[in-house]
Simulated scan of single mutants.
Amino acid sequence: MQTLRRMELVEDLAEGRWRLAPGLEDTLRSMGERGDIIRLMQREVTRARLERTEQRIYGPASEPLVGRVIMRGLADEHRDRHFLLVDGVDGRSHYVGIGEAATVEELPKNAVVRLAPRVPMVRDMDRTVQTIADVSDGRYSTVHHQLYDPTASRAFAESHVRRLEAMRKAGLDVGRDPDGSWRISPDHLALAERFEQKLARERPVEVEVVAKGSLDHLAAADGATWLDRELASPSGMHVRDAGFGREVRSAMSLRQQWLVDQELAVETSGSIRLRQGALALLQRRELLRIAARLSGKMGKEFSEAKQGDLIEGRIVRRIEGVSGRFALVEKSRDFTLVPWRPVLEKQIGKQVEGIMRETGINWRFGRGRSGPEIS
């Protein structure tokens, strides 16, 4: 009891009587788990031959973080919840609970990731659905949407339908009638908030892979890298001159010199500035290089997609590049490469059609092209 008193978990009422702090058991359990996590981090950091004296447990109130993945492990086998150990650019190692295994794809060894807590909040599209239903007798559909807002594209309205479908699959009270319209309850925004809270429990952290492989490779990569995007539009992340942060600073310096040598950046007043269009040029260089390699293997000509072009064919597979991911779309005589979208994963091996726009591609799936548009 004296030990608990020093931890401010009990109060001494004298004469052998004590008052336990509310939630004492949960607090002790949490402290035990934290101790286990710290010991795990120290063991794995040592195993990775890293000298990191500071450890952090990444939580809902944490700032966005960029770092290199040290390992991925199982945090709770009964609920299939996983974690990452991340060597951050802030010079610290971080334990990051990432939720259910299926919500985060497999990560390459030494992948550099950007992490941000998932904040459960009602989205603008939820409010739009509620507004349209309020003036449409409690109904929502793409037709109702375009009547309410004639400037809205069908693809934009379909994104709201996908949101409703996801909420329905999650077991929320969102009903769809045979005519394709949706019955929207007066408490729709409360349902949307519950849905977001469920998603946050399943996946408490957004994990984005920003680089694969070593930083040394990025320093001279002939493609639009994460380092280039940081130079073009700094995210404001704090890169400490210690640990992995020091490695990133070194790679950034080497990358700047490479860009200057390639005449893609200029040095003015002691700082390096990318030339206009440098990112697009780097991405196109890599695109053409990948296309040339594929053309030799496939025995087909590459057709470069331009704004306004009709993209049609069979989605063959996903192509990984330094600049990002591309979808390989094959036709009988030629093929093209277009920006990858996660929604294309389920379309591999199928016929697709879409229009190349400045902001992306409006996809229409299915051989009959009668499916929804995905923008």
Rank of each mutant, 00 (worst) to 15 (best):
residue 362 N to L: 03
residue 245 G to H: 03
residue 157 A to G: 08
residue 84 L to Y: 03
residue 61 A to L: 12
residue 369 R to H: 08
residue 30 S to N: 11
residue 156 F to K: 11
residue 325 R to D: 07
residue 93 S to C: 13
residue 295 S to M: 03
residue 16 G to K: 08
residue 315 I to E: 00
residue 166 A to I: 09
residue 240 R to Q: 11
residue 144 H to I: 05
residue 253 S to M: 13
residue 320 E to V: 15
residue 314 R to D: 06
residue 320 E to N: 14
residue 284 R to V: 15
residue 145 H to M: 10
residue 25 E to L: 13
residue 260 V to R: 08
residue 169 K to Y: 04
residue 146 Q to D: 08
residue 364 R to N: 09
residue 136 S to T: 15
residue 308 G to S: 11
residue 14 A to S: 13
residue 69 V to M: 02
residue 103 T to I: 00
residue 307 Q to F: 14
residue 259 L to Y: 05
residue 267 E to I: 15
residue 158 E to F: 09
residue 94 H to W: 14
residue 215 L to I: 13
residue 192 A to E: 13
residue 279 L to T: 11
residue 38 I to G: 02
residue 211 A to G: 03
residue 247 E to M: 01
residue 126 D to S: 06
residue 36 D to K: 13
residue 369 R to G: 12
residue 3 T to G: 00
residue 173 D to N: 12
residue 194 R to K: 13
residue 146 Q to W: 05
residue 151 T to P: 01
residue 319 I to S: 03
residue 283 Q to G: 12
residue 211 A to S: 05
residue 111 A to K: 01
residue 39 R to F: 03
residue 207 V to G: 00
residue 25 E to V: 15
residue 300 K to I: 10
residue 227 L to V: 08
residue 170 A to E: 15
residue 152 A to I: 07
residue 315 I to D: 01
residue 304 E to W: 04
residue 254 L to R: 15
residue 373 E to S: 07
residue 11 E to K: 14
residue 201 R to V: 14
residue 61 A to M: 12
residue 197 Q to Y: 00
residue 91 G to M: 11
residue 339 P to G: 09
residue 234 P to A: 07
residue 347 Q to G: 00
residue 305 A to H: 02
residue 364 R to D: 04
residue 340 W to R: 07
residue 178 P to C: 12
residue 88 G to N: 05
residue 216 D to Q: 09
residue 44 E to A: 10
residue 98 I to Y: 01
residue 246 R to T: 07
residue 176 R to I: 15
residue 195 F to V: 09
residue 171 G to P: 04
residue 364 R to A: 07
residue 79 R to T: 15
residue 131 T to H: 06
residue 36 D to P: 00
residue 299 G to K: 05
residue 338 V to N: 01
residue 140 Y to E: 09
